[in-house]
């Protein structure tokens, strides 16, 4: 495999997050950013369908892509005690997804589902060079989302890109490089 290929793991965060992520991936050079692995929560079949549609015009033999699902760490209304267990299960599933795909690049844009994947990617870095890039949602104008804040404070991401200069001014370590829409 040529080193000019970047194994890219793409986390689909559902709804508007998925739409923005697929717009982002569409703009990348598919001959360079491959193979692509899309990860979504098991309950988000719509997300994977949208990714499938977005990839429909790509020849998977030239520019391969795969899909994986991981359980959610917490469903709405779930109790705290049981969410400890489900979080552990989600982290384990994220570890499995990340270590079997072995990405060079992890692309995330929230929400919470992306945190177990980021944790796994940070661990993977002990063995393999892996970049984490967080592209904050275009809906965020005044404040970073919780998952972006976690990556911002921990400096675990290689870059946090925001889509409004006004937001960048509040978070000096974040970057503004343009807007997807």
């Amino acid at each position: 495999m040529g080193r000019d290929e970047t194994r890219t793991l793409i986390v689909l965060g559902s709804g508007g997050h998925t739409a923005e992520m697929l717009t982002l991936v569409k703009g990348l050079d598919h001959q360079r950013y491959k193979p692509r692995c899309y990860v979504a929560a098991v309950t988000d079949m719509l997300g994977l369908q949208k990714a499938q549609q977005a990839e429909a015009n790509n020849d998977s033999s030239i520019s391969p892509f795969v899909f994986k699902t991981i359980p959610r760490s917490r469903e709405v209304g779930q109790s705290y005690i049981s969410s400890i267990w489900t979080t552990l299960v989600a982290i384990w599933a994220a570890m499995y997804a990340v270590f079997t795909f072995n990405p060079d690049l992890v692309l995330v844009n929230g929400p919470g589902t992306c945190i177990p994947i980021c944790l796994a990617a940070i661990l993977l870095r002990l063995f393999h060079k892996c970049k984490i890039i967080y592209v904050e949602s275009i809906a965020r104008v005044n404040t970073l989302s919780l998952s972006a804040k976690i990556l911002y404070i921990s400096r675990a991401a290689d870059a946090i890109m925001v889509q409004w200069p006004e937001l960048q001014r509040q978070y000096p370590w974040a970057e503004y490089a343009g807007r997807l829409y």
Binding site: T23, L28, K131, V135, A159, R179, L180
Partner: peptide, 16 residues
Amino acid sequence: MSGDSRGIFSRIDDIV
């Protein structure tokens, strides 16, 4: 006016 997204892609290229 639609945002210019080229900066995002070239920044990702640079980071990688």
